[in-house]
Computed example of a mutant assay.
Amino acid sequence: MQDLSSVPAERRKGRGAASNAAGRFDLAREEVWDGWDIPEERGSFRTEIREETARSLITYNRSPDLPFDRSINPYRGCEHGCAYCFARPSHAYLGLSPGLDFETILIARPNAPEVLRHELAAARYRVAPIALGTNTDPYQPVERDRGITRACLQTLAAFNHPVAIVTKGALVERDLDILAPMAALGLVRVGVSLTTLDADLARRMEPRAPSPARRLESIRRLTGAGVPVRVMTSPLVPGLTDHELEALLTAARDAGADAASWIMLRLPREVSALWQEWLAEHAPGRAAKVMGLLREMHGGRDYDPRWGKRMRGEGAYARLVGARFRTACRRLGLATDSQPLRCDLFARPPQPGDQLSLL
């Protein structure tokens, strides 16, 4: 039997994960020799789009270290293939691998806009900003053809509902015709993730995401249209990208960002092994330092899931990075707390079957 956790480099070109091990709920994946010495050509991992009929869309959370209590995600999995993505373990719930499956077997939710409209129109619904793209990127390549994110934005705009978007995707610029009018009403803010200015490192670490220069151009175009942008220097990788923190903030400020945030690299569940595989292949000389600093910030573990600790860690190194961030933001005039999005404009548009007003 051959362990399928490791995949030859030629089969995963342009992908972030180096393996495709079974998720924690599944049996191990192995190839069994059938006794025939017949050469079998193995192809590369191609993107596959599956569909899911969503029964609900808005996910609520009570996490005290998150700035939002609800979110929506039009897709499961993400073709950007970021090696460090904290959302990879969510694919295990689908019976898929958090490794290569996460970035090659994507789940689209085509009825998401209709479900969202139904949930917003419910009499019991109480408005608060919705976060869009907190688990997987709403502007990953599949959105170009599917347009589910755009349709969800149209629904939110129809309700005058506030939304905070998180993305690396340049496709967000396509929706400026929706975002700019919403921004004029104080209903939208976009967070653009910028992890490094090193194009070669970004290409290896985030293989199908736009280049750093392209993300900076997105910030320019969004802010030029009046859409406020927060640069998210997340995740910072200790010993690999954290030395770029001030340069990242400066470049984003110069492109028009007015606010900033940061999160330290998080390695929950299967992500730790996947990330260490990536380090061994792409940055072997840095691997010991990166993991050593992470463990120093998480009490000797690769990751500490406790609220208040999971995002930034603790200890001297975490405090140093936090101090550098605050100092740079003050110098650059970047806000760390954004203006709240407006909730007072929320209104349910007429729904099919509504009784017409006599006024």
Rank of each mutant, 00 (worst) to 15 (best):
L197Y: 00
A213Q: 12
P129F: 08
M291D: 10
D65P: 14
C343H: 01
W262A: 07
M311N: 13
A347K: 11
E40Q: 14
H298M: 09
T59E: 15
R253F: 02
L197D: 13
D69W: 03
R221H: 14
A316V: 15
W278M: 03
Y93L: 13
V115L: 01
G285C: 06
V192L: 12
N135A: 15
D337H: 12
P352K: 08
A280H: 09
V231I: 14
G95S: 05
H282F: 09
R124H: 15
T136K: 10
Q276W: 00
A54L: 12
P238I: 03
V163T: 03
L187R: 01
W36Q: 09
M205L: 15
R310L: 09
L106C: 08
A122C: 11
L265W: 00
R50K: 07
S90R: 07
E10V: 09
G99K: 00
E30G: 07
L240V: 06
N160K: 03
I219V: 14
R330V: 05
V188M: 06
T149S: 09
G315I: 04
N135C: 11
G23I: 04
S218Q: 08
P67N: 13
T223F: 09
A213P: 01
P74R: 00
V127T: 12
G224Y: 08
A28I: 10
A170W: 04
V321H: 03
L345W: 00
R62Q: 10
E314D: 14
C329Q: 10
P284D: 04
L293Q: 07
H243V: 14
P129D: 12
L293A: 04
P110E: 00
P64H: 00
D65R: 05
R203I: 13
G16Y: 04
R88Q: 08
R220W: 04
G226P: 00
R286F: 01
V231N: 01
W262F: 12
V142N: 02
L4M: 11
T250C: 05
M205S: 12
S5E: 13
V227E: 00
G300C: 10
R203Y: 06
F25N: 11
G95E: 09
L216H: 13
R189Q: 14
S19W: 06
G133F: 01
A323V: 11
D26Y: 01
L100H: 07
Q339Y: 13
L187M: 05
L106R: 11
L27S: 15
R269M: 11
M232Y: 07
G23K: 01
A22S: 15
P64I: 02
L132H: 01
P340E: 14
Y303I: 10
D145R: 11
H282A: 15
L156A: 01
D175E: 05
A164Q: 09
I105L: 13
A122Q: 15
E114S: 12
L66Q: 14
L334M: 07
L120Q: 02
L345H: 01
T195Q: 05
S357L: 14
P8E: 06
L293V: 05
V321M: 13
I219E: 02
R342P: 10
Y84L: 10
T59K: 13
V127G: 13
R295Q: 15
N111C: 08
A347W: 00
R312E: 06
S5D: 09
R146N: 09
G313R: 01
A92P: 08
G81D: 06
A121C: 12
T136C: 13
S272F: 04
V290D: 01
R117N: 07
D69P: 02
F102L: 08
N61S: 10
L320W: 12
V290Y: 00
T155R: 03
P129E: 08
S63H: 12
